[in-house]
Design a protein around this nucleic acid. Sequence first.
DNA 1: ATAGGGTTAG
Length: 762
Amino acid sequence: MLRPVVRPTTLNLLEQLTPSLVSRARSFSQPAENLKRNGTPTSSITTRGPRKAKGPLVDPDLREQILAASQSRRFLPSASLTKFNTALAQITEATKAHDLLGALKLWQALEDHLRTLKNSDVRRLPDSHVRDLHKIFVSNGLTALRTRDGKALEKTARDFALQAAKHHSAEAVSVLMVLYIQVENPNAALDFYNECIQVLGPLQPPASLIEESKDANANSSLPKGSDFGLALPEEVVSPDHFDPGRVSAVLAGVAAHAMLDNFKSAFDLYHSAGISASSFRRQHFLQYFSQNPKMEKKVRLYIDRVIVASIVARPISFSKHIANLADLQTIHKLQSFYNHVLDGIFGPEPYLAASPSLLSSSPNLLAALDESCWTALQTGFIKCDRVELAAKVWDDLARAQIKPGVAMWTGLLDSHARRRNSAQAVQTWEMMLGEGIQPDHLSYRALIQALMDDGQMEAGLKMFKEYQQTIGGRELEELGRPVYNTMIHGFLRRNQIEYAAHLLEDMRKHGPKPDLITYNTFFGYYGRQKDFKALSGVLNQMSESNITGDVVTFSTILSALLTVGRKDAPSTVMNLMRKHGIQPNVATYTAIIDAQMRECGEPNLNAALALLVKMEKEDGIKPNEVTYTAILAGLYRGEWISRQKADLVRSKLVQRMRAERVSFSLTTYHILMRAALDSADEQGHIDALDLLREMEDAHVPRVTSTWFILLAGLMRRDKWDAAHEVVGKMINSGHLPSRSLQLMMKDVFANYRAGRVVQQMH
DNA sequence: ATAGGGTTAG
């Protein structure tokens, strides 16, 4: 008996553990690799007997399994074997020559031959060949298959695209669909799409990659269980792998409906696929229409609208999407997304409803924004300091004749609290009441935080009492606790330990029961006070209540120990955390890195930089702007290394922050500006001005310190023209200069004028 | 949602 055998040595031990490799071996992937190198069949499909697994290579159980698998393999007669190997070599050759039609013909012949054999179902073209052939299918298909010879191969092309979709990528499917669309037969594209779904099952990514869909809009007009209902055979897609080619196929389906002017069907097809096309995939797909701008325009319009509608139709993913984009680097994307949404509501062809109740007002409306969507937009804009955009959300709500609910108002209150603007918060509160909105726990919490953090303790206390007497019942544990915790935090910020301790006692006796956050707040306070006796007292209370610490607890205690110079703190606390099974996070590492930098020595700098690498490499924790800022600040704290060395490390770190797209905070900008202006580099002030421009572009607010750092530095360098320009920018930004800034401005004007006079004399 | 890590006081 002749049997194909796979050389055991070519199989990596680890890979032997994965079932997919056994099936690959069955499909002759191994000899295919050799063919690729040599161009001719090799001896790796041999006529030798069954291989013997070598002794210590695998454990006995596993070896049994492998043997069993190899013996259950179907065998090819030697004539077929030769034929098979020759065909492989020919396909490889045609593929290399980018001869798509030739390769498809050979592939068809091979398939026909294999089909005549018994049990042929387990045999097919090796994956590496499928991949290579698929590649030229995608790059040449649109032109090659349009020719007369190509048209003759339509059926073969369809079969291959399907097989490739099953085992590698559905991109070829989308190419064929695009071809049908381009020859103005969109219905053929949709037929093929449906045929693919019959075979492949839903074109969905594995559950782990899609958002929870339980939030599906209650008013959604989506048909339940559309034609994506077929289960997927296990071996077709491994659960952790998702083929981006499937996104292209879905987009091709949308494009086909676009050609039929059927927006509703385009949406249904896209939405029920459960995918989310990235802008990269969208761009990639649209390239198929680069020769036909008119078609491209229409397809782009459909795809954009369908993507927006599909996100709106799932409020939770809507909020997540917004939160992801609410970042200085991506705010422009959030803005453009919002503009798309507005166009969907107010544009000439509305397809979105501004509220669920309006959804039924027109059959063209596919999805509705609910209050959480509007709130998410507001929160996102506020997070990026784009107050004017947050205000626009309110205007747009008014335009849609929707009255903002309590969550919208609370978003405003939160933003005032974050800016410690209690006056604005109180004003907002009164407007809210004026609108007849009933405040809830969250809005009371935000108002109290705004008051307490802005030094309005009396008023904060008053509101807290009002809260307790109105909706803040003691029994409302989960709802009321954040309000109480905010109150405690407010007291402790102002070092009002008696009030805080009193409230804690009250909570222990009457509820809401203190929780981990309550205790962490106290840890923070006692840590700042360097009162370790009191700190261990809280620790005892906590364990009495059976509450265990978390990363925040340990990080807080760690930085307390570090500020009192306990060098052993990092190792001790980290070991303790490990013992408790608590993973350190960015804050933990940042605390240690900061402490190293405060030592002001070259070895400490090296230790800090080593930690920066270690946290990411070993623990997979990405440093953030606080981490980098801690190092940058340390570089310029005192004169413990040369300016040149400090500047070198700074530029490397800045480079890395940019590469990693770490956002720069106000603090980061201040430190970098100061460093640039203090640098020995003649051009340092140019760097500082560039940073100012960057802040403007990113809408990072410029505060008194910003202008002070810039003006003081430029004046020190005698750069009066630049200083004059900065003063102009300050005035234009609407900043009201403090007394000391006004004095500096005077100085700048005088020297600038003097400089002009001198220039004119020459 | 509320707690922890980075600037400096002009």
